[in-house]
Amino acid sequence: MPSTRPLPPLIALRAFEAAARHLSFSLAAQELFVTQSAVSHHIQKLESELGVTLFERRTRAVALTTAGQAYFAKVHAAFELLRSGTEETRAPATARIKLTVGLLASFATRWLAPRLQAFSAAHPGIELQLRPDIALADVPGGEVDLAIRYGRGGWADVRARKLMPERLSVVCSPTLLGGTRRPRKPQDLVRYPLLASHAKLPFEWQAWGTRFGVDLRGAQTVHLHDYNIVVEAALAGQGIAMGRHRLIAPQLASGALVQAVPDAVLDDPRIGWWLVTPRAAKGEIEAVTVFRDWLTQTAAQDPIN
């Protein structure tokens, strides 16, 4: 008949099995994430309960006694059976789906990155790979699964869906507005360096100038590689930038950047951030749909200021 005597505590058996396998109390402690003294304590209690000595304690090592070797063979086999049974029962790990997104570095760092933790927490099975570049990613050619573009739409061979509009106003460091030459009206901006980022089809300054009746052809324009650099140059007082409010909201809120001409704000519904996918795709992959829906919901919760 099976014995009715209780088994030793599982924690003591684990300590013994690990120590016997490594022939080291310290290595067993590292494996089990406990202290060496805790392993020694559990084994002493196990020896006391069994009434036998399992280890020979030496100066810098331990060795199994004859009883310890016999007991280890059975305990180790039991733990191996538990391990293999657990692995067979455990649901297989789901491979993460990679989703490649093309976008501007400025949008990635100033708008998307602070919000990505929420997406990763909600969708751990999707691994986002961001490809920031000032050049347009080849969406039809499959270079990326999805792109986020800035502009007025109208790109060839793709589907473009407005994610959110952008608000534009001319901004600068407060230090640039000191003295008697402070701009009072849009036309006064021609006295300052105008900061512009690289674009295949630049439109911001032209659209703003047309809206407020300013001829900017005689203004000094400083062309910079990326919009992140434009923002840093404006913060350093090097000129007037076209402020994309979605991207510079923290700087406007803190006063690090101010509107040079507060009444000259451009809200053009055509200008904004767009979600771009291949036009010829037979069916949108699920990860694209999930990320697109999350972006749309997140953008809707971000009122423009």
Rank of each mutant, 00 (worst) to 15 (best):
R182M: 08
T94I: 12
T94A: 09
E49W: 04
K98W: 06
Y71T: 10
E87A: 13
G68D: 04
R21V: 05
R115A: 09
T221P: 02
H198E: 09
L50E: 08
P262N: 12
D138Q: 09
A70V: 05
S3M: 12
D267K: 00
Y192M: 07
I240S: 03
I43G: 05
S37Q: 14
L64Y: 02
W274D: 00
S84D: 10
I248H: 00
I148E: 01
Q129E: 14
L252Y: 05
H123A: 07
L46E: 07
T180Q: 09
V62E: 08
G102V: 00
E87Q: 12
Y71L: 15
R149Y: 06
R60T: 14
P262M: 08
V231D: 02
L176G: 01
S26Y: 11
L257P: 02
R182Q: 14
R292A: 12
L103S: 02
Q297D: 11
D226L: 00
R57L: 09
L177N: 06
A264M: 08
V62F: 05
F212R: 03
V170T: 09
Y192C: 04
A122D: 12
A287D: 08
S106K: 04
I271V: 14
A118M: 03
P262V: 11
L224H: 08
T53F: 09
Q30V: 09
L235D: 03
M164C: 14
F203C: 12
T175S: 15
L168N: 06
M242P: 02
Q129N: 11
D293H: 06
A219V: 06
H123M: 04
D263S: 14
V258G: 04
R217Q: 11
W111M: 07
H225A: 14
A160P: 02
D293E: 15
V276I: 13
Q36K: 15
L266P: 01
R96D: 13
L252W: 04
D302F: 05
R182H: 07
R131F: 10
D226M: 00
R83H: 12
L23P: 09
F16S: 08
D293P: 03
V171D: 00
S197W: 00
F16P: 04
A122W: 09
V265E: 10
L50S: 05
V144Q: 00
P250G: 04
P250D: 04
W273N: 05
P2S: 13
L252G: 04
P2Y: 13
L103F: 01
F291S: 06
T66Y: 07
V139S: 03
I43L: 13
V170H: 03
E49F: 10
D293S: 12
V231S: 01
V75M: 05
Q117T: 13
N305H: 08
L295P: 01
G151Y: 05
L27T: 11
E49R: 12
A91K: 10
I148H: 01
V265W: 02
G125Y: 03
S48Y: 10
A19I: 02
F55W: 10
Q259L: 12
V276R: 02
S173I: 06
W273Y: 13
A95H: 10
G125N: 13
T53C: 10
R181H: 12
A122E: 15
W155S: 06
G179W: 07
I285E: 05
S26E: 13
V231L: 08
L252K: 02
A234P: 01
Q187F: 07
E286T: 13
